[in-house]
Design a protein around this nucleic acid. Structure first.
Lengths: 148, 148
DNA sequence: GCCCGATAAGTTGTGCACAACTTAATTGTG
DNA sequence: CACAATTAAGTTGTGCACAACTTATCGGGC
């Protein structure tokens, strides 16, 4: 019982370490275009629906990040000329986030990134899909518990 | 090809989201004893070898964190009375990190934490072990590539 | 029409992570 | 022995995450 408290036995440490290791793989790749990993995640959401201009809250719901994280991040993306923010006409509380032409065009430059990352993991395609699905299940389980 | 760039398909996002979700489970538990999750990880290493007093570098090698992260974190743990730092006698560059009595006694208070976390994931024991081993393999693969 | 609770985004403060740098001690080589 | 290269820890600066709070807008009930 007492030696359950050992670092290498903990799933959470494995998760924490793997997450940081993968971010290390992303860093040099994203550095070339001046992005951080969370900024890249925001762009992924925007690229999925290029004509949508989601609000800050909608972005936050996808990425599970709050305005405390997103507001300064989006300000930096706007400063880099990749994104525009505008108050919604019919609800002045909302801020819609849209891609600039420059932000749109970044997508092609980065389309081979997922493949390069997948290769760095050393896992086969089947293992990757299984891993992703297991992790997604864990995340959903935890979030469902939170809400109740 | 182009729709590989979709958030929900990316293993890395699943990893990033799961890691943050699990930290969310830890937070209220560790809050009760005034710890953050990375501080808890440092204590895990110290609890494994209570008479060892590893150096900052040795802690960093276990957790893959550098002195830029560990120095202020250890200063806070010392401020909380859980840890002591002392310069090594035979190598004045090194700083050895040891547990205080208070830091040692925290272990018993937290020994049921891994079980509570495991339950929150909703996975069975076999799945947890498999997940941990896959993640550890990915982390090791990435780090081996870095070194070459 | 007015107010009250709810909602949206932003701000402030704390604590990681990590890069780049500084300071100090040690080791290896001539 | 001298001294250059290395190593260890700490510092500084940037960018997340997240809690707690503020400001502004909106909507429903009266």
């Amino acid at each position: 019982m007492t030696d359950d408290l050992v670092l290498r036995r903990q799933v959470c440490f494995a998760l924490y370490a793997a997450s940081r290791a993968l971010t290390d793989v992303y860093r040099p790749i994203l550095d070339e275009v001046g992005l951080t990993y969370p900024q890249y995640l925001v762009l992924l959401v925007l690229w999925e629906r290029p004509d949508d201009a989601p609000t800050v809250s909608e972005l936050g719901a996808e990425l599970r990040l709050d305005s405390g994280t997103l507001s300064p991040l989006l300000k930096r993306l706007e400063g880099a000329g990749l994104v525009v923010r505008r108050r919604s006409a019919r609800d002045e509380r909302r801020v819609e986030v849209g891609l600039t032409e420059q932000g749109r065009s970044l997508r092609e430059q980065l389309c081979d990134v997922p493949l390069r990352i997948a290769q760095a993991t050393g896992l086969g395609l089947g293992e990757l899909v299984a891993l992703r699905d297991t992790l997604t299940r864990v995340t959903d389980t935890i979030h469902r518990q939170k809400e109740q």
